[in-house]
Structure formats: structure tokens, C-alpha cells
Design a protein around this nucleic acid. Structure first.
Ligand code: MN
Ligand code: MN
Ligand code: ZN
Ligand code: ZN
Lengths: 132, 132
DNA sequence: CAAGTAGTTTAGAACGGTTTTAAAGTAAAA
DNA sequence: TTTTACTTTAAAACCGTTCTAAACTACTTG
């Protein structure tokens, strides 16, 4: 399936801008990135895009599941092209994230979900500190 | 141990402002809160404090382990008086956090920690969605 | 105790990431 | 083609947080 189809399939109009973003993000190589990272890459690919459009686009892509946002308390939002269920190592000094594939981790016991709610995804973050 | 001793013990000067904050936060009842939440509570206790001082104070308390900060991608930082090792349910709609005590959850398998790093804490977040 | 000094508080400005505004542009529907 | 809904954009606004620099206060030393 090409990127135009992926966008259509997701219910998004394949605009010029969304295609530029899709070409960068949906190429099969996974990555963690900020809005600014992405804009820089758009610029260095010879294109350009307003930061508002970058954010609009990321929000749309996220809402239709083409990308995810990683749960971290850093002030800048970090997005993830890996939409498989997975977890992260977080180097708190640098902010760098490393994927933990789902099969590398497993839970023995889960808490009871509060009344009226359902489990909508578990995120495990293993914080790392440099050894010595 | 009273609050003045707790502060001294943590290497912090027990200033008037830190005592006000300690009286609110270190009373044995755990809570999740933002800087603004805390300032409101300071105000409604008849005291007042600049927002810069609230943030300074939270940073100091956090750095010496009197409170924690929760790992969440909300734009406003959320602090936690529960300094025991524990995890959270997160209602993504409201931002509400609920503690998961350490013994309510357990990991069967952990991934290998990358070379040169050590595990500096695991955070598990179970995202909740309202059921129907 | 007094004097010195290191640390703290504060109002306000600055900052940085993100969202909003409103006008112009574009894709899809009719 | 005409109309309609959606999208993009520059610029401003927003909002949580940090910085600045001056006033203040807790602690140390004599
Ligand atoms: Mn923030
Ligand atoms: Mn964040
Ligand atoms: Zn990832
Ligand atoms: Zn908690």
C-alpha cells in the first residue's frame, strides 16, 4: 500500500503536505522524533512547511493511528512511528528513547481496573542512568 | 519527625515558604498535584507564595526525594507525594492519576539493559478509558 | 551577640513548545 | 464547473516554566 492509499485509508485527504510527512515517516524505518525534528527534516529534503501544519499533521496522524505519542514528562512532545504495542528505555539525561519490543517484557500480575473503566494500553518506561 | 527536621534532614533550609509547602504536602496523605494546584491551596490556607517559589520549592523537594514527578505526556507537570515505588492508572480524558501499589503489579520478564547503563526505575502507566 | 555570606524569595520578563486566528488556498462533492 | 468542506499559513496568542536581578533571610563565624 502506498502512502496516498494509507492516508485515504485512514480517512485523511492526501494533501501535498501530508504526503511529504508520510514520505518521511511511513517508510518502514521506525523513529522517535519531535515536531521540530520533523520540520528540520522536511526542510533538508528541499520542502518546507509551517510549524502549525507540522503540528496539525502530527495530531491527525496520531488520531488515526499512523503514529503514536510517547508518554514522557519531558516538555517537548515525542512521537513514535512504531505503532506496534511496545515499551521504552528512557535516558533521562539526554531524553533518548530506545524501543523495548513487546516480547522482551512481560507482566506477571496486573492490578484490578477501577470500576467503569477499561484498560486502554499499558506503557512501561525503564529509566536509565549511565553506569559509573 | 516534624517537618522542620525533615527539611533539615534533606539538606534544605527550613524557610517560611518551605515550611508552608511541607505542612501541605508532608502530612501523610498522598496526592497528585500541579504547581498551580499547590499555589491555590497555599492561598486558601491564608498564605501566599510567588509561582517562582512554588516551582523552586517543588524542584528542591523533588531533588532530595521528598516528592516525585510522574512521567506523563500532559503539558503540565504532575507531582506526587507518594515517594514509595509505585505505578499509576491514567485517565487520559481527565488527566486523573490513581496509584497502583507496587505489590499490585509484577513483571515476569525484563529486557536486557543497554550496555553502559543501569536500571534507574521502572514506571508503568495503565491508560484508562471509560467503559461504554 | 554582630557582621559577613551564602542561600532564598519575588515580581516581572523571558522563554519555548503548542494552539489559535483568520484569511487564502486546495481537494472533493455536487 | 460550481460549491462546499477541509487544509495551510504567518502571525499572534497562550500557557507552563525558567530566568533575572534586587531585596531579604537563615546560617556561620568571630
Ligand atoms: Mn511543561
Ligand atoms: Mn510532555
Ligand atoms: Zn518507540
Ligand atoms: Zn502516585
Amino acid at each position: 500500500m502506498n502512502n496516498k492509499e494509507k492516508l485515504r485509508n485512514a480517512g485523511l485527504r492526501p494533501t501535498k503536505q501530508r504526503m511529504i510527512v508520510a514520505d518521511i515517516l511511513l517508510n518502514g524505518f521506525n523513529r522517535h522524533f519531535t515536531a521540530e525534528n520533523l520540520q528540520d527534516e522536511i526542510n533538508s529534503s528541499g520542502n518546507s512547511m509551517s510549524i502549525a501544519t507540522v503540528y496539525n499533521c502530527l495530531k491527525k496522524f496520531k488520531n488515526c493511528g499512523l503514529i503514536k505519542q510517547v508518554e514522557t514528562s519531558k516538555d517537548t512532545a515525542i512521537f513514535d512511528t512504531n505503532t506496534d504495542y511496545h515499551h521504552h528505555f528512557l535516558n533521562e539525561e539526554t531524553g533518548e528513547l530506545i524501543d523495548i519490543e513487546n516480547e522482551e517484557i512481560s507482566l506477571r500480575k496486573l492490578p484490578e481496573i477501577p470500576q467503569g473503566y477499561i484498560n486502554n494500553g499499558i506503557e512501561v518506561i525503564i529509566k536509565l542512568k549511565r553506569h559509573n
